[in-house]
């Protein structure tokens, strides 16, 4: 056996445990789920497929179609609002806050990111409720006479999501901004660009990879999340993850839950395909 072969054998032995784990607890269950999604429920028994019944139902039953639409709408709105809010925040921290305070400013801006996800959604429920601080403050200030219904609406879901993803995006955009040589902005200004032109023509395009990476992450995490819409949005309009949990809980309909999960996966894959060329844009 040659030295190279021995080396390869050792390397394979090191990779094997992680690969086996991933195969056993990720690939196989996922394959099983896809197979299950082709079966259907008869009474309380799962009947193995393969058959397209679940997928036909998903794309014909208005409640499922609505779930897909609601999920996509919420996710897109959340992604756009989060990017628009986070970019100036990251820019101010990176460019306007003095160097020695930057690390602190950034840590503060993302501190609640590290609290429990469930607790964070709960605390928005606390704030946005009819008796919560927001409504009480607005009534106290004389802006409204009685509480406006925000809890258990899409608005509450969006606010809760935006809060989380603004922090995430601030992190990714900030790290993109500080990696840029300060000479880009200097060179542009030196050649006559105004402050606004420097941002629009040079800095913004240069942060596009960071923005797209963050936006893709936002999309993936947002469309697959169950907690935030369940706590803040309530049961008035259900998102895909809520529908999946509903299949599991009420009926124990594993095939249908699996089929909905496959659809969810497909949406994420589409989003990836759409943003892939931005994710690996060349940088100099």
């Amino acid at each position: 056996m040659s030295i190279e072969q021995a080396e390869r054998r050792r390397a394979s032995a090191l990779v094997a445990p992680a690969l086996l784990w991933t195969l056993a607890f990720f690939v196989l269950p996922f394959a099983g789920m896809v197979w299950l999604s082709l079966g259907h429920l008869e009474g309380r028994e799962v009947v193995a497929g393969p058959g397209p019944e679940n997928y036909v139902r998903i794309f014909t039953d208005p409640s499922f179609l609505k779930g897909i639409r609601v999920s996509l709408e919420i996710t897109l709105v959340v992604t756009v609002i989060s990017v628009v809010l986070a970019w100036p925040l990251a820019w101010i921290i990176a460019m306007r806050v003095p160097q020695r305070w930057q690390r602190l400013a950034l840590m503060l801006a993302v501190l609640p990111f590290w609290t429990s996800y469930v607790v964070r959604s709960y605390s928005w429920a606390l704030v946005l409720g009819a008796n919560g601080v927001v409504m009480q403050a607005l009534i106290g200030a004389g802006i409204i006479d009685e509480p406006v219904q925000i809890m258990a609406t899409r608005t509450a879901t969006v606010i809760g999501f935006v809060h989380f993803f603004v922090m995430l995006l601030t992190l990714t955009i900030y790290s993109n901004l500080v990696q840029l040589s300060p000479n880009y902005a200097r060179a542009a200004a030196d050649l006559g660009a105004s402050g606004w032109q420097v941002i629009r023509l040079v800095i913004l395009p240069l942060t596009l990879p960071g923005v797209m990476t963050g936006a893709f992450l936002t999309f993936v995490l947002c469309i697959g999340d169950y907690i935030t819409p369940q706590i803040l949005g309530g049961n008035n309009e259900l998102t895909l993850p809520q529908l999946i949990m509903l299949q599991l809980g009420r009926r124990g309909d594993f095939p249908m839950a699996s089929a909905l999960s496959v659809v969810l996966m497909a949406l994420v894959t589409l989003a990836y395909a759409a943003s892939a060329r931005w994710l690996k844009m060349d940088r100099v």
């Binding site: 040589s181 000479n183 880009y184 200097r186 060179a187 542009a188 200004a189 030196d190 050649l191 006559g192 660009a193 105004s194 023509l201 040079v202 395009p205 240069l206 596009l208 060349d282 940088r283 100099v284």
Partner: peptide, 28 residues
């Protein structure tokens, strides 16, 4: 800087990576 009759050539060149050479040179 932009109102001075000077231009600076930076150590790291600071060429705008998202623009063609033509657009880089035409920026000023």
């Amino acid at each position: 800087p932009k109102d001075r009759p000077t231009t600076t050539m930076f150590q790291d060149y600071a060429l705008f990576p998202h623009m063609s050479l033509r657009d880089n040179v035409a920026f000023g």
